[in-house]
């Protein structure tokens, strides 16, 4: 799909942009970047956060999903220099280092992970869904992950994992409410 220029541009882009981003609650400095860099590129190549995956670079696959000011977006479709002042949360920010969220654990338990490439994006989307709709029906789940392409699983175990988390959270809430 990518159009490659016949002759490479040997002058290269002008690396002159410097700005600060707020990623997972921390201020991160970006220095000497090119104006056209996407948030995905800056996360992966400049800030050492490779959890957001780069597959399509055109907003089609959802592998680079992040939360920006509380909204699920594709980081490949965000101009990094325009993410200044925004609160960006990546998959790395969901749980402390070395631990898993309940959604991540449920994906493992349900066998929802095959090659794994799409999983970080799916995890971010599913957290966003369950924050908004704690007990989603199947149609809601399918619509919520409709922008996250998985080419391995056929989605069955992913849908199961989401329902497992919803049920476990509901059970935990009921336990808490007991006098």
């Amino acid at each position: 799909m990518t159009d490659h220029d016949a002759t490479p541009d040997l002058t290269g882009p002008d690396l002159s942009e410097s700005y600060a981003l707020s990623i997972n609650g921390r201020d991160r400095e970006v220095a000497d970047a090119w104006l056209g860099e996407s948030l995905l590129y800056v996360l992966r190549e400049r800030l050492g956060l490779p959890g957001s995956k780069n597959a399509c670079e055109q907003g089609e696959c959802g592998s680079c999903s992040v939360m920006m000011d509380g909204l699920l977006v594709n980081s490949c479709c965000v101009l990094a220099a325009d993410a200044v002042d925004a609160d960006v949360r990546t998959v790395e920010g969901l749980a402390p280092d070395g631990t898993l969220t309940d959604v991540q654990q449920a994906f493992l338990d349900a066998g929802a992970v095959q090659c794994g490439f799409c999983i970080p994006g799916l995890i971010v989307s599913v957290h966003d869904l369950l924050d908004r709709a704690p007990q989603p029906d199947e149609l809601e789940v399918r619509e919520a992950i409709s922008g996250n392409l998985c080419r391995c699983t056929g989605y069955g175990r992913i849908l199961q994992a989401v329902q497992d988390v919803a049920a476990a959270r509901t059970a935990a809430d009921a336990q808490e409410d007991r006098p």
């Binding site: 159009d3 104006l35 996407s38 670079e57 490949c76 479709c77 220099a81 325009d82």
Partner: peptide, 20 residues
Amino acid sequence: GTDAMVEISFDHRRPRHVLA
């Protein structure tokens, strides 16, 4: 950004000056 960033990432557009 859903149109503009695709053009930029596929090198169909090289921004020199962006109005955000």
